[in-house]
């Protein structure tokens, strides 16, 4: 028999033959390595900048709350979106949200209110005249933008909802529609997305019920047709594509807090001194190279009174 265990063959004998006779296999091996490397080169295409399907909003008033800082280009604000319902890649929502349906759209108002209601989006938009609010917007990931949002204070809607005296919190629920939102087909977060505010935070005039930006309706990837903008809190507090607003006497359980209670608290006020998820002392304004210091409450000092007596290191 000629069967020989390979262990019996001194390696000094094998090596040269393997080395010089197996050119074909060798090439196959190199080819395979190349494929492994090639798998990585999938990100060749640059972000696109196609026209946005938005409609101009008429009669927009200026607001004293607006900052005079340089506004971030609309292309950045509409092509760099943390919108996990579509994708966890920030370049994707611009493409994936293109055909998202924002009409017909209604918002249910329930919980501790005088009367449960269902409002059409176009009716809601007429509750008050639209204002342009140029706000700083700070992401918990460490970047920031300046956006001219269009909307009016959330308090305008809350007044019409007639919450009962017992209502202490407001809970915002975003749409759950896996057919339209590919990101929701995976259990990355607990869908639907839920956010919440304390009643006094929700009633604060800075808190914006938003349906537009840059003078036109919201692009789908930015939370159309209706979203929240709470400029002194990290961006994820500003729920997008809202379908339900509930008034409760208990602190709502919010999506990011459920996902990672250590890093993402219920309050999530912008705070350079509390470093849960990242070091939050600095931020990078999109379009700028050097990091800049992050301001307490994102520079909106007028909300400080809401938290007097509250230990913000514990209530992060």
């Amino acid at each position: 028999m000629l069967i020989k265990q390979s262990a019996d063959i001194p390696s000094s004998e094998i090596t040269p033959r393997d080395l010089y006779l197996n050119r074909r296999r060798f090439l196959a091996g190199i080819g395979l390595s190349a494929v492994v490397a090639g798998l990585g080169i999938k990100e060749l295409v640059s972000p696109s900048s196609e026209a946005l399907a938005t409609e101009k909003i008429d009669g927009i008033q200026k607001s004293a709350f607006s900052t005079t800082e340089k506004v971030t280009p609309i292309n950045d604000v509409s092509h760099y979106n943390n919108y996990y319902e579509f994708s966890t890649e920030k370049e994707d929502p611009a493409k994936l949200a293109k055909d998202f349906k924002t009409r017909p759209w209604s918002v249910t108002v329930d919980g501790l209110v005088a009367k449960k209601q269902k409002w059409d989006i176009d009716a809601i938009m007429k509750f008050a005249s639209p204002e342009e609010r140029i706000y700083r917007h700070r992401c918990v990931e460490g970047w920031s933008i300046v956006v001219p949002w269009v909307g009016f204070s959330l308090s305008e809607l809350i007044k019409r909802a007639e919450p009962l005296g017992k209502a202490k919190f407001v809970e915002f629920t975003s749409i759950h529609d896996p057919a339209q939102m590919p990101g929701q087909r995976q259990q990355i977060l607990n869908w639907p997305y839920v956010e919440g505010l304390r009643m006094d935070e929700a009633m604060h005039p800075l808190t914006l019920l938003c349906f537009g930006m840059y003078g036109a309706s919201l692009p789908n990837q930015d939370g159309a047709p209706l979203r929240l903008v709470v400029p002194w809190k990290y961006g994820f507090k500003s729920a997008k594509a809202i379908v339900k607003i509930s008034f409760t006497d208990r602190q709502p359980s919010t999506t990011w807090n459920e996902a990672n209670p250590h890093d993402f608290g219920f309050y999530s006020n912008v705070n350079p001194n509390v470093n849960r998820y990242h070091s939050q002392a600095h931020e990078r304004r999109l379009g700028e190279f050097r990091p800049r210091p992050t301001l307490m409450f994102n520079g909106y000092d007028q909300v400080a009174g809401l938290y007097s007596g509250l230990d913000l290191a514990k209530n992060y």
Binding site: D18, L19, N22, F26, A28, L32, S33, V36
Partner: peptide, 22 residues
């Protein structure tokens, strides 16, 4: 990370494909 994994794949590849020259 990719290059770390490529590096670590050399030994298995050369053994399994029997391409020692890798």
């Amino acid at each position: 990370l990719r290059f770390l994994l490529i590096t670590l794949s050399i030994t298995p590849l050369r053994k399994l494909l029997r391409v020692p020259v890798l």
